[in-house]
């Protein structure tokens, strides 16, 4: 993990803001001034509750939304504003997304073969039908499905298999970055483990980076190298997995950690949960600045806040 700094930066998000004007007088600030970097081959876990802006962040990065403000650099190219043709092509081939609901993310009227081949169809990445077929078969094998699945429709697959197809669709493009947007939250526990194992093995095998967006901290802890905690559109804390899980500083992170249920009935029954309420906490995220706790560990807060938290922990 200390090697992070030597590794090449793949994605750099600087002061990203994503606002949605609802009416003339009311704007939803889904993402408000967040910055982070993802290195090549790294798994970055982005956690937060619903409405924290974690999915919006993913969608802004992959440009499903037009960012309101801020700069996003991917593979050395600026992808935040209006992009030239080459940049669009680079973005569309090198960055991909896996969605939350495996049923909704697959077109019910297409066969698995065509679903997976969509990317290579669009970018003309094969020379013959034979090659196209072989490419799909190879990817199917990689995600743990068989050739026979290529001729099925999505409703002929189980939830876990559907998600594998979703992964295959992203993987066939040999991406540098995969954004997994709540990719496991709609699955059963035992299937979640399968998909997470698959993602991890893909990362090891292909060296692609993964932005893993989730609300399930135990899975995030398991899969991620680096973690960012989002709350109300602000990145309140970020650091390596150890930083965040073992030395959490921000009260929100600490409340999140304490809320993770543990499978130990004797202790879990009356384990107290830390409560955190932004409204009554007296904090104002927009006043805070990033404080370095260690090289890798950053916390958002005013000087006084951070001092106080560190004192509380000591």
């Amino acid at each position: 993990m200390q090697a992070n700094d030597q590794r090449e930066v793949l994605l750099k998000v600087e002061n990203l803001k994503q606002y949605f004007p609802i009416s003339r007088s009311y704007t939803v600030k889904a993402v408000d001034d967040i910055s982070f970097t993802i290195h090549r081959g790294e798994i970055y876990g982005l956690v937060g509750e619903s409405g924290s802006g974690k999915s919006t962040t993913g969608r802004s990065i992959i440009r499903l939304y037009d960012p309101t403000d801020g700069k996003i650099t991917f593979c050395g190219q600026d992808i935040s504003g209006k992009m030239p043709r080459d940049t669009v092509r680079m973005l569309r081939t090198k960055m991909h997304m896996i969605f939350q609901d495996p049923m909704a993310s697959l077109n019910p009227r297409e066969k698995v073969m065509d679903i997976i081949a969509e990317g290579i169809d669009i970018h003309q990445m094969y020379s013959s039908q034979e090659e196209r077929r072989e490419m799909v078969y190879a990817i199917l094998k990689k995600v743990g499905l068989s050739k026979e699945h290529a001729n099925r429709y999505p409703h002929q697959l189980s939830g876990g298999q559907r998600q594998r197809v979703g992964i295959a669709r992203a993987l066939i493009m040999k991406p540098d970055l995969i954004i997994a947007d709540e990719a496991i939250s709609a699955l059963d526990v035992s299937i979640q483990a399968q998909v997470v194992n698959l993602l991890k093995s893909i990362q090891v095998e292909t060296g692609c980076a993964i932005l893993f967006i989730a609300h399930d901290l135990s899975m995030v802890r398991y899969i991620s190298d680096t973690i960012g905690v989002l709350h109300l559109g602000h990145l309140v804390e970020s650091g390596t997995t150890a930083d965040v899980f073992e030395h959490a500083v921000h009260p929100y992170t600490r409340s999140l950690l304490s809320a993770i249920p543990r499978p130990n009935p004797l202790l879990e029954k009356d384990r107290p949960i830390m409560t955190y309420d932004y409204k009554t906490s007296g904090l104002d995220y927009s006043q805070g600045t990033y404080h370095d706790i260690t090289d890798t560990h950053k916390v958002l807060g005013t000087d006084a806040d951070v001092q106080r938290w560190l004192k509380e922990l000591a």
């Binding site: 499903l64 669009v88 991909h96 993310s105 969509e118």
Partner: peptide, 9 residues
């Protein structure tokens, strides 16, 4: 699935 298609360009 439409979003997915858009992210594929």
């Amino acid at each position: 699935y439409v979003l997915a298609s858009r992210t594929l360009g």
